[in-house]
Design a protein around this nucleic acid. Structure first.
Lengths: 204, 204
DNA sequence: ACCTCGCCATGACACCTGTCACGGGTGCAA
DNA sequence: TTGCACCCGTGACAGGTGTCATGGCGAGGT
């Protein structure tokens, strides 16, 4: 069986999505059966088209690729997921694997390797960028508490503490305490730098 | 002549680059003759392979696509440039056109339109996303002075004023003056928000 | 020559931030 | 029960930040 492997593509950039489809269509054993541009369309498309492997981008409107991966794995355990993303942030890799992804490749890997990665995932193997795996180990999981993450996320757009506090229904002092803790854990000196570092590490 | 249009692809993400090559290779009148992953490799590749049209991403290591476009146009006025970028920021469009680009498409346009855009550029026409063009008009050019842009760029990673001043060989007070002006021009209240807005607008 | 504009700088002021110490509350595991 | 970690809050303090007034310099345009 499995003369051809059925694929679903999810990427918010239509041009990239179509280009990946063209690339994968060159392989005689691969077939793109569905394309979606939003994370919250993935589950329905899987149910309708029954792919063998899903290629999911992380940053998408609706829900992100990580959540979409978890949803697909929960509803269709036989469907495997390969996360294909722009940013090789260690936290992304860890969270993707926790969500049940079988593989994780960044978009600056050579195009010739994508089809092989798909085949490996199809065969039940794991595909993980080796350099990213080591980075993930040294950086480890996020040391931020849930509330610290919330506050740091709210601080991403540079609003003053008062606005953050209002949006989260907290006291200004509490926000500053959480920010201070996050600043310490990221090894930075301002909340802006802490937010940037946490985002790069995939902690938020 | 011009049985086929010769193309150069420049994108830092190898997977996207290869996928675009596969997509364009489906068109019988188009031929990808060169691929590069860095902005500072574009000029040499143009000189060597003599493409008719260059597809340049903006964000690349080395020099960005805008500068690469200007360099190509200066050295090879007969080579046309189509900027293909992720972010449809109005400032990018304006700067790309100033640099001599013949076209500007964002990566979430349908894949089927890319080949047509390339043909239009090849024919000497301009290709510009219409909604982006209107946004560019309403937002206008950057109101920031050169120094304000420098300071705001240096403020992007959240360093304190003292670090910015040291990096730019300025006094702390001067940095704060420039930041204050930028905050006023962006309609924000903190330098972090000003930097974010300026980046979204393509002003920096 | 004059004026305007950008650039750099200083000083002063009100305000915001980052840090610390402290307390009270919850939930969870030893 | 006793810790322990997380959450929320207050108060206080040093230092950073945003704003303004003011001044000097040089490059353009009238």
């Amino acid at each position: 069986m499995s003369g051809t492997t059925r694929l679903l593509l999810a990427d918010d950039q239509a041009l990239v999505r179509g280009a990946l489809a063209a690339l994968l269509a060159l392989e005689p054993d691969l077939e793109v059966v569905a394309e979606v541009g939003r994370g919250d369309e993935v589950l329905a498309a899987v149910a309708e088209h029954r792919p063998d492997v899903c290629l999911l981008d992380i940053q998408m409107p609706g829900i992100d690729g990580i959540e979409a991966c978890a949803a697909v794995r929960a509803a269709h355990p036989d469907v495997r997921v390969l996360v294909v993303t722009t940013f090789g942030r260690p936290g992304y890799l860890r969270r993707a694997l926790e969500a049940g992804a079988s593989g994780f490749v960044v978009k600056d890997t050579p195009a010739t390797e994508l089809a092989e990665a798909v085949r490996r995932v199809r065969a039940g193997l794991r595909v993980v960028d080796p350099v990213l795996a080591t980075e993930s180990l040294v950086d480890g999981a996020s040391p931020l508490t849930e509330r610290e993450s919330d506050v740091l996320r709210a601080a991403l757009d540079g609003e003053p503490v008062s606005a953050i506090a209002a949006r989260l229904h907290l006291s200004g002092g509490t926000v500053r305490n959480h920010l201070s803790a996050a600043i310490g854990k990221t090894g930075t000196r301002t909340r802006a730098a802490a937010a940037r570092v946490a985002r790069e590490r995939g902690w938020i």
